[in-house]
Each structure stands twice: as structure tokens, then as C-alpha cells.
Design a binder for these strands. Structure first.
Length: 243
RNA sequence: GCUGCAGUUUAUUU
């Protein structure tokens, strides 16, 4: 019960509330387990308290518990969300040295972390290493790569990556298309973005409110407000209401 | 003690 409450408190942005609750509960003799620490690590990272979060890892050991894969993944994700992908990579090495096998969460998180800070090359390096270890790229991996390539202005390669994902049997999703649509429109390729919005339907992916918002944003930024209106009416006629 | 279950980690818009 406490763990569930702590998780909710942390997600609402209040690690301190969680810690207060933890103290109360400790006084009643309820002992935290590894889940508790994992939740707190996530909460601390969300607040940007990375040093506290990494210290939590030591706390775990002091409490006689052993960090598990989720503990490492949580910390790695927290570091990545705070633009610290290379620090996160250090923990990848630490966990391997501690005898843990990184899983798809681990690899995808670090790959995403590097893509988000514009270091697609580093992401690629991790990916190649991961594939060598038997990792199979999934929709998360491809999404991050597409995002990263687009941010780097390499929309052509981003499109190649989507095609590659398709060829490898990845079930293409609205999210993957949205990611590429965003990249195309942010790189001035609004026509290609519109075309992709049409193509995605042939592949069974129905544009959602995110898709339309991306397209509308792209059109408006290019000054094509009347085209944006047309698209918006199209969305409304399909039952997708502006939010 | 055993069995089951539950709670924690990764991708897209403004």
C-alpha cells in the first residue's frame, strides 16, 4: 500500500511528500523494500536531485537489499531525462560489472538519452553493441532514432529508419509516424509531412490528435494559416476534435 | 514453509 502511495506522490512531483510518508511508516515498523527505493529514486530524479538519487543506490545496499535491474534502469532513465546520458552509460557499465544483464529498457533508455541531446552517433554505438549482445531493436528504439536524426536535421535517414523498422517486422504505430511527421515539419518539409500523414493510413495507422496538432503547428509556423484551417476542418470531420 | 497475485524502470505535439 505504501509503495503505491509513494509512487503516486512521486509522479505528482512531490518526493518530499513521499519521504514524509516513508518516515511515518518507518516509525510504525513497516520496512521499505526494493520497490520502495526504486520509486524514491525515480521521484528524486524527476525533481532533478540526481546526487540524492545516486546516493539512494548506496542506501539500498546499507538496508541489506540488493539493487536489481529495475533499480539500475530507473536511475539510468532519471539521468537521461536530465540530459546526462553519458553518466547513465557509466551506470550501464557498473551494472554489467555487478553481474546484471542490461535489458531492452536499459538500452532503449540510453539510446533515447543520447538522441535527445543530439548525440545520435553515441546512440548508434550503444545500439551496435547491444545488437551484438543479442538485443533486437523495437518500436522504442526506432522512435528514439527517428527523433534524434530529425533533430540533427537528417530527415532522409530518419525516413530510412522508419522503412527499415517496417521491413524488420516492427508493427508501425501512430507514434512512429508522429515522430517522423514532427521531424519533417520542423525541418521545413511540411509537404512531406502531409504526404506521410496520408501514407500512414494505408499502413493502418489513423492520424490522432497529436498528428493533427503537429501538422497544424508546422503549417502555422510557415504562415499557411488557411491551409491549417482546412486540415483542422478535415480533422473535425473525422471526429478528431481540437484540444 | 509452499503456491499465487499486486505495487517500481524505456518512445511522439503545443
Amino acid at each position: 500500500t505504501f509503495n503505491k502511495l509513494a509512487s503516486i506522490l512521486c509522479k505528482n512531483g512531490g518526493v518530499q511528500d513521499s519521504e514524509r510518508l516513508l518516515n511515518k511508516v518507518l516509525k510504525r515498523g513497516v520496512l521499505p523494500n526494493l520497490f520502495t527505493f526504486n520509486i524514491l529514486i525515480r521521484g528524486l530524479c524527476r525533481k532533478g536531485l540526481l546526487d540524492e538519487a545516486t546516493r539512494m543506490l548506496d542506501c539500498v545496499t546499507k538496508e541489506g537489499l540488493t539493487p536489481d535491474l529495475v533499480t539500475f534502469n530507473t536511475l539510468i532513465a532519471g539521468l537521461c531525462k536530465n540530459s546526462k546520458a553519458s553518466e547513465a552509460e557509466q551506470y550501464l557499465h557498473k551494472m554489467v560489472n555487478s553481474g546484471f544483464e542490461p535489458d531492452s529498457f536499459t538500452y532503449n533508455t540510453i539510446i533515447d538519452g543520447y538522441c535527445k541531446i543530439g548525440l545520435v552517433e553515441n546512440a548508434d554505438k550503444i545500439l551496435n553493441h547491444a545488437v551484438f549482445k543479442g538485443f533486437v531493436p523495437d518500436k522504442f528504439t526506432y522512435c528514439s532514432l527517428i527523433y534524434g536524426l530529425c533533430e540533427a536535421g537528417d530527415t532522409d535517414r530518419a525516413m530510412d529508419v522508419l522503412n527499415e523498422a517496417c521491413k524488420k517486422g516492427i508493427q508501425l504505430s501512430v507514434i512512429l509516424f508522429n515522430t517522423l511527421i514532427r521531424g519533417l515539419s520542423q525541418n521545413g518539409r511540411i509537404m512531406d509531412a502531409l504526404q506521410l500523414m496520408n501514407e500512414m493510413q494505408e499502413k493502418g495507422c489513423i492520424p490522432d490528435i497529436w498528428t493533427y496538432n503537429l501538422i497544424l503547428n508546422g503549417l502555422c509556423k510557415m504562415g499557411c494559416v488557411s491551409d491549417a484551417k482546412t486540415v483542422m476542418n478535415d480533422a473535425i470531420s473525422k471526429g478528431i476534435l481540437p484540444d
